[in-house]
């Protein structure tokens, strides 16, 4: 399969991730959408790496992205739990203390 097929998959995954973040009224979905977007980015990294001489750089970046994703997930989950504790809700729109 050519590079374009992978990029197309990555693009569609990215689009679905954005919809997941924006359309659902739940912080967990926001988290999951972010994971999708990161995965889409990873597919691109690895695919371009593969089709551009297989010089390891893309793969290394993918690994760093995975590491950051893991850290982000842990912190985000802590935030979600704290938000729920404070606002009795995990709707992103309800955490609006900083508004105005």
């Amino acid at each position: 399969m050519g590079l374009g097929a992978y990029i197309a998959v990555s693009a569609v995954l990215f689009a679905i991730g954005v919809v997941c973040i924006v359309a659902r009224r739940n912080m967990i979905y926001v988290l999951m959408g972010i994971e999708m977007i990161l995965n889409a980015a990873n597919i691109n990294f690895v695919a371009f790496n593969r089709f551009n001489g297989d010089a390891m750089d893309g793969r290394m970046f993918a690994i760093f992205v995975i590491i950051l994703a893991a850290a982000e997930a842990a912190v985000a989950l802590g935030i979600v739990l704290n938000v729920y504790h404070l606002f009795e809700s995990i709707k992103p729109g309800d955490a609006d203390l900083m508004r105005d």
């Binding site: 924006v22 926001v30 992103p92 508004r99």
Partner: peptide, 14 residues
Amino acid sequence: FQTGRIQQYASFAV
């Protein structure tokens, strides 16, 4: 535009 809703902000970004 400053609604304080992160999802709107994300929409704007996209």
